[in-house]
């Protein structure tokens, strides 16, 4: 596609100018003429690090649970806990097992503090993506591919998802059976239907509940 867009303004003005018998040079017919550069997908590759839920674009490499222990203890445990229990206000790696997590949901308790890879993560390949891209938190994106596979594997093992002898790789990660996978449902809000009542909307005295329990002190 070379001529992609001709603005109405451009056309109209050009037609007017031609009626006067003048040159149309400089009046843009293509609003993007000469802007930007083409790039090959090969040239984009170093930036194209995104991994899909189904494992598409996982880089070649591998790491075992065992190989993940040292880097996890050195780079991750101070925030996420030696056993994935979380620390210093940072997220857990392993929360309640799925049945207990679902039970707490049914009681109306999301419990973000209870989320882990074993109850609120649908697909193992994007766990690798997160770790390779964003971790360790204080030096994001500095772990190698094999190291990231190993840490991914260690975290999956902390969540009881893969056995001690498992090897995480671009060949195996997509098939890891994540406990939460089938619980996800795409949003279809609105999920409530209030009406625009204007008068006598209820017939009792409103009862105020809840004083400020925490507040913010400056």
């Amino acid at each position: 596609m070379s001529k992609l867009k001709t603005s109405k303004f451009g056309l109209g003005l050009a037609a007017g100018v031609m009626a006067l018998g003048l040159s149309t040079a400089g009046i843009a017919a293509d609003e993007f003429n000469g802007i930007g550069a083409k790039i090959t997908e090969k040239a984009v590759e170093p930036w194209d690090i995104s991994v899909f839920y189904d494992g598409t674009n996982l880089p070649e490499g591998s790491g075992t649970v065992e190989a993940g222990q040292n880097p996890y203890d050195a780079k991750c445990a101070m925030c996420h806990g030696a056993f994935g229990e979380g620390a210093e206000g940072y997220p857990k790696m392993a929360g309640d097992p799925m049945p207990a997590f679902i039970k707490s949901l049914k009681q109306g308790l999301d419990g973000v503090g209870n989320r882990g890879v074993n109850n609120a993560w649908g697909h193992a390949p994007t766990l690798f993506d997160m770790i390779k891209r964003h971790m360790p938190f204080y030096a994001p994106g500095t772990m190698g591919v094999d190291e990231s596979y190993a840490v991914t594997c260690y975290v999956l093992n902390l969540g009881g998802i893969v056995p001690m002898d498992f090897t995480c790789s671009d060949k195996t990660l997509a098939d890891v059976d994540m406990p939460a996978r089938d619980y996800y449902v795409t949003d279809t809000r609105p999920d409530v239907d209030n009406e625009r009542c204007m008068s006598d909307c209820y017939d009792y005295d409103p009862k105020v509940v809840g004083a400020v329990v925490t507040g913010v002190s400056e």
């Binding site: 997590f101 049914k106 009681q107 109306g108 609120a120 993560w121 993506d129 619980y183």
Partner: peptide
């Protein structure tokens, strides 16, 4: 992609168990 943000962070676990 179903990234970290889409599977772990910006999600809403609901009382219906989904």
């Amino acid at each position: 992609l179903v990234t970290y943000q889409e599977t772990r962070h910006y999600i809403e676990p609901l009382p219906d168990g989904t």
